[in-house]
């Protein structure tokens, strides 16, 4: 469904991504893990059109989209739930969902989809008239995911959806992402924590310094000694900080 071919990105003169190639099949759950600054976010930005690539191709359902605008890419069926949520602080929950469908013309279906999102996130239904700046981090994340769903994506890209959330909320968010995946949406999830991403993914890519260092089935990568050392925090030299209070010893806080 999505195929990225020899994609490179630069910020000014700095190379952020080097010759990345990967594919995602319809209905797949793919995890993209790597340390801070490895290029995970840049890859999502290149696919969604926020940072047009320097070279290489992005093909989505047979169409080249590497030079398309964000709006065209959203309409083609790729939604990008950006890092740090990027909600609009003075705009209500309900308006977030409505704006999520800005590119759609089928107003009646949009109203139905808003109800569907509320069914997935009953908590934000209670807050629908509230502006999003007043919501908790978890609620904001749910609004951000709901907003992304409103474009009816075939591929949903999530950039660290668990960042800064309490362990219990992380579980809820993961459950929701799995439910969205079960309903047939392909998922590309960026995570620093392999422990959070790999157990749910079909396949995974490990990004290091702008290149793909490893790839394979998620369950194989979970057993990979290098991945364990660097991204599961087992030897305490990874980038994860263990939270002794967390219910799940692998859940991370920052």
């Amino acid at each position: 469904m999505l195929s990225v071919e020899s994609l490179s990105c630069r910020y000014g003169g700095v190379v952020a991504l080097r010759q990345i190639s990967l594919t995602i099949a319809a209905g797949e759950f793919v995890a993209l893990i790597g340390a801070n600054g490895a290029g995970k976010t840049t890859l999502l930005r290149a696919i969604s059109g926020l940072t047009p690539p320097y070279e290489g191709r992005v093909i989505f359902n047979g169409q080249p989209i590497e030079r398309a605008s964000c709006a065209q890419i959203v309409r083609a069926g790729i939604a990008h739930c950006p890092e740090e949520r990027k909600i609009w602080p003075h705009i209500t929950v309900q308006e977030h969902l409505r704006l999520g469908a800005f590119g759609r013309k089928d107003t009646k279906e949009v109203a139905r989809d808003i109800d569907r999102v509320y069914a997935i996130f009953p908590k934000v239904l209670e807050r629908r008239k509230q502006v999003c700046g007043t919501l908790s981090g978890g609620e904001q994340q749910m609004v951000a995911i709901g907003r992304a769903l409103m474009s009816r994506p075939k591929l949903l890209m999530l950039d660290e959806p668990n960042l800064g959330l309490a362990p219990l909320v992380v579980e809820q968010v993961i459950d929701v992402i799995r439910a969205i995946h079960r309903d047939g949406t392909s998922i590309l999830m960026v995570e620093q924590s392999a422990a959070l991403a790999l157990p749910h993914a079909d396949r995974a890519f490990v990004l290091e310094n702008g290149s793909i260092a490893k790839q394979g089935r998620a369950r194989d990568l979970l057993q990979d000694p290098d991945v364990k050392r660097a991204y599961l925090g087992e030897e305490k030299q990874g980038r994860l900080i263990q939270d002794p209070l967390a219910k799940d010893p692998l859940a991370t806080t920052r």
């Binding site: 990027k86 609009w88 003075h90 590119g103 907003r147 992304a148």
Partner: peptide
């Protein structure tokens, strides 16, 4: 509302096809 969204967080606005 889309215009206000664009003032508040431009990239998020771009990502919903505004």
């Amino acid at each position: 509302t889309a215009m206000r969204a664009t003032f508040q967080q431009t990239e998020a606005a771009a990502l919903v096809a505004i």
